[in-house]
C-alpha cells in the first residue's frame, strides 16, 4: 500500500500530515502501538524542514510518502528547499547535566533511535529523508474473526 500528499512548508500543516498518517495506518490495518513512532518521525522531519528549509521569498513544498510493503513501513519526506542534511548534525549529549542540555538535534536523534534505518539524499533540487522500520504484519480479517 502506498499514499502520498503534498503540503506547504508551514507548521500549521503538521496536523494535516499527521492525520494523513493516521488514516493510512487505519487503512493498512497496522498495529496502533507502532503509529506513534511514525507520528514522531514525521513531526521531527516535517518541523525540521519548516524551521530550517524556508529561505525568504521561497516557500518550499513538502511531500510526504508512506509505503507499507513486505512488513516494512517506509516514510519519505521530500522538500524543494535549500540542501540540508539533518543527519550530518552532531548527536546531542543525552548524558549532559541539566544546565548544559540543549534540544537542538534531539529530534533527529530520536528518529534514529526509533527507526531501523534513516537516510538522506539530495536529488536534483530536492532533499529526501527516508525512514524505515520493520513492523509486525497486520492481522488479516480472518485472523481477527477468531478472537
Amino acid at each position: 500500500m502506498r499514499r502520498r500528499t503534498t503540503v506547504p512548508s508551514d507548521a500549521a500543516q503538521l496536523a494535516v500530515v499527521t492525520q494523513f498518517l493516521q488514516e493510512f495506518w487505519r487503512a493498512a490495518e497496522l498495529p496502533p502501538a507502532e503509529a506513534r513512532t511514525f507520528e514522531l518521525a514525521l513531526e521531527e522531519i516535517f518541523m525540521n524542514v519548516v524551521m530550517h528549509g524556508s529561505p525568504a521569498g521561497h516557500e518550499p513544498r513538502i511531500e510526504v510518502s508512506l509505503e507499507f510493503c513486505d512488513g516494512k513501513m517506509i516514510l519519505t519526506v521530500e522538500d524543494d528547499g535549500p540542501p540540508f542534511d539533518p543527519l550530518s548534525l552532531p548527536p546531542p549529549d543525552v548524558t549532559a547535566s541539566l544546565e548544559e542540555r540543549r534540544v537542538g538535534g534531539l529530534g533527529v536523534f530520536l528518529v534514529r533511535q526509533m527507526m531501523d534505518d534513516v537516510s538522506y539524499r539530495r536529488t536534483g533540487k530536492r532533499n529526501r529523508l527516508r525512514s524505515c522500520k520493520r513492523i509486525a504484519p497486520p492481522a488479516t480479517s480472518a485472523e481477527r474473526m477468531k478472537h
Binding site: 514522531l40 521531527e44 518541523m47 541539566l98 544546565e99 542540555r101 534540544v103 534531539l106 529530534g107 530520536l110
Partner: peptide, 20 residues
C-alpha cells in the same frame, strides 16, 4: 498525555531549568 516529540520535551526542559 498520549504523545510527545522533541518540541514537547523542550517545554519540560525549559521549565526545569527555570525552577531549578
Amino acid at each position: 498525555l498520549e504523545y510527545i516529540a522533541s518540541a514537547g520535551l523542550r517545554v519540560f526542559l525549559m521549565t526545569q531549568k527555570r525552577i531549578k
